[in-house]
Amino acid sequence: MAVRKTSAGEFMASDVRNRLRSMILGAELKPAQRLVEDDLCERLGVGRTPVREALLLLQGEGFLSRERGWVVETVDRSQVRAIFESRAAIEAATARLAARHAEASELDSLATLVEAMEPGETLTRSELNSLNTQFHKTIIAASKNMFLAQFHERTLFHYWMLRVPILFSEAEVRETNLQHRRILAALVGRDEEEAERAARHHVEATMAIVEPAIEL
């Protein structure tokens, strides 16, 4: 059976796609923003072909649409429940797999992140969000499943595009970290069923706070 070789052009298009995806997830490129190929070429320092290929890939992944040019997708807030349901399913699945596959170094990193999130009153919301994102990304990586990781990125995109204007109370922040500790304990104990339950409960608890605050 012949093995298909990957060209340098394909590698470049994949790199451009990853860079653009990070810019979208990081809100550097905002919902409904129009993208001009020439501007992107100059900004990224690459030619038009990899940019065009990357844009097509991102369109297929749901990050972009074409409306007389390229546009960063927007998210309908009425879909908030569907977004959280998707996150719950994916994070539950990855937590189960992480309980099976997580390496000692990954468990150590998760324990460090949980401790770092504990003094909630001394952290800015930006710092807390960053630590929380690292915690969940570490679990995704520990699942050792690249396809679930890709699905998680899609739900993460939709979640952040909601631009939810909510400040969690100190009590809610502490409760959230207790949920993190429950997930971590299940991972350390290699308890796949408990890891799945704890991860699902964590997302559903967040949904219970966020959903009522969004005007549908």
Score class of each variant (00 low, 15 high):
A82M: 06
Q59M: 10
H180Y: 13
V16D: 09
E172N: 04
T74M: 12
M23Q: 14
A92L: 01
M146F: 05
A149Y: 04
R182H: 11
A208T: 10
A104K: 07
A95W: 09
E73F: 00
I83E: 12
V114Y: 06
G47F: 00
R182K: 10
L110G: 05
R77K: 12
L131W: 00
L113R: 02
M1H: 11
P50M: 00
E175R: 15
A185T: 11
L162A: 13
A2E: 12
R81A: 10
E73G: 07
E170D: 13
N145W: 00
Q79W: 05
F11P: 00
A195W: 09
T74N: 11
N177V: 08
V51N: 02
L148V: 04
T74P: 01
T138W: 00
A213G: 15
I214P: 02
Q134S: 09
K137M: 05
S130H: 03
L123C: 07
A141H: 05
L20F: 10
S143P: 03
G47P: 00
L107Q: 02
V36I: 15
E172Q: 14
E127G: 00
D39G: 10
F84K: 07
Q179H: 07
A186M: 08
F147G: 01
H201C: 01
R182P: 02
E42G: 15
R197N: 15
L58E: 00
G69R: 10
S130R: 01
L57I: 04
F11S: 05
G120W: 13
E106T: 04
V75N: 06
R163Y: 10
